[in-house]
């Protein structure tokens, strides 16, 4: 039978793998890069944090207090959204196309005239 700490680790690992799988499904199925970014960074980051927490709990049960795992949790939690923001901003500046049913593009107004990226499927009526 499972002991109590093994049940705890199993719950952490199960939730983490489930969230990672959802992130992978999102990155396969969603229509454009910005929504894919949404899937890949939010759910996968939470899943990885839960999995590392499970690993930390296991080694705590073995009598090893591992500071590297706590550092990894803090680091992944801080840096994964930053990396996603940098990549999505560079994609938007380079003119990667939005999904055809996108309603509003707020970053559109922040470009100077000569730097405006050209997208094909975007029909913005300017006054």
């Amino acid at each position: 039978m499972l002991s109590l700490i093994e049940i705890l680790i199993s719950i952490f690992v199960l939730l983490g793998s489930f969230l990672s799988l959802i992130g992978s499904l999102g990155i396969m199925r969603l229509p454009d890069i910005y929504s894919r970014m949404h899937a890949a960074t939010k759910s996968a980051t939470l899943g990885v944090v839960l999995l590392i927490l499970g690993t930390f709990t296991y080694f705590l049960g073995e009598g090893i207090f591992s500071l590297q795992l706590l550092l990894t949790i803090a680091f992944v939690f801080l840096t994964a959204p930053v990396a996603a923001m940098i990549i999505s901003r560079s994609a938007h500046r380079n003119g990667v196309e939005l999904w055809g049913r996108t309603k509003h593009d707020e970053l559109q107004e922040s470009y100077p005239e000569h730097l405006e990226p050209e997208r094909e499927n975007e029909k913005v009526e300017r006054p």
Binding site: S17, S20, I27, A40, V48, I52, V76, A80, A84
Partner: peptide, 9 residues
């Protein structure tokens, strides 16, 4: 990026 984060897990 997703692959490397999954590799951590």
């Amino acid at each position: 990026d997703l692959i490397s984060i999954m590799m951590i897990a």
